[in-house]
Amino acid sequence: MESSAEVPERMARARQSYQAVKAELARAVVGHDELIEHVFIALVCGGHCLLEGVPGLGKTLMVRSLAAALNLSFSRIQFTPDLMPADITGTQMLTEDAAGRKIFDFQRGPIFAHIVLADEINRATPKTQSALLEAMQEQSVTVAGKGHRLESPFMVLATQNPIEMEGTYPLPEAQVDRFFFKLLLEYPGREELARIADLTTSPSPAELNRVLDAETILKIRDWVRQVPIAAAVKDYAARLILATHPHKNGRDAAAEKYVLYGASPRGLQSLVLAAKARALLGERPNVSFDDIRAVAPHSLRHRIILNLEGDAEGVTAEKIVADVVAGVPEIE
């Protein structure tokens, strides 16, 4: 029978797991500490991440290293304009069985892995992009009328390049909303660049150890959902979501002026769940207002659709979120 004495042990174990993954990734990836933390949070929350950054910042390397540090299966899909949905989900192949009869056999696509890297996701056509929708939301794919369950834990890490927009297909809002976090990769600093040079030009790149298995990740997922959150904190998260909408409360002037559509209810789910994970990894027994504020930019930035005026004036979703966070009181 469980007792409350297990709770601090759980929190310590979750934190140790995170620290272990972070330490292992640090052997291959330079910097990006915050990015790694949020990717790990998304992993233990059962979410997917959209990584955005200019080429060469180590997006793919980071995802590959994460998969290597976790004892999980990994597959990479390079999205191109001619990529077809079946190339992702898999297809029925005509084969012969043991008796020599012709049968259709389902050949699993690269989506059937724990960690899926959807590299340059915006280069594929919307039709192909939408092949990920069901997988990301339902953790299953349907081919030829037959559903196939994906492995658990399942996480899609998609990357996209904010420049070189020619020949790309911006992700539809419905798909963007399915990403738990949208994480931005910052350009490395002077010291980090020096370390990158050392790390990538050394004779033998370090082999990463597998420090975390699927079972532990699933346990941590379960623990995350048990973290208590006060009604006042949930109300604060809800008010943040509403404040991103124009004509909802009129509190934030920037949202009123520049936002076409605000964050969806999935944004609230993401806020609360990510805050719970952050509290757990911080070995705190409950969600605080700070947890909500810390995850708000990553949870909300891709869920805010700016209007024409916002685009014209160069307003970013990050600014809207920052304004909203600054303007909404904790208790009202």
């Binding site: 006060a230 006042a232 904190v233």
Partner: peptide, 8 residues
Amino acid sequence: DARAVTAA
């Protein structure tokens, strides 16, 4: 860190 609010 909102422990009192949650505990209340």
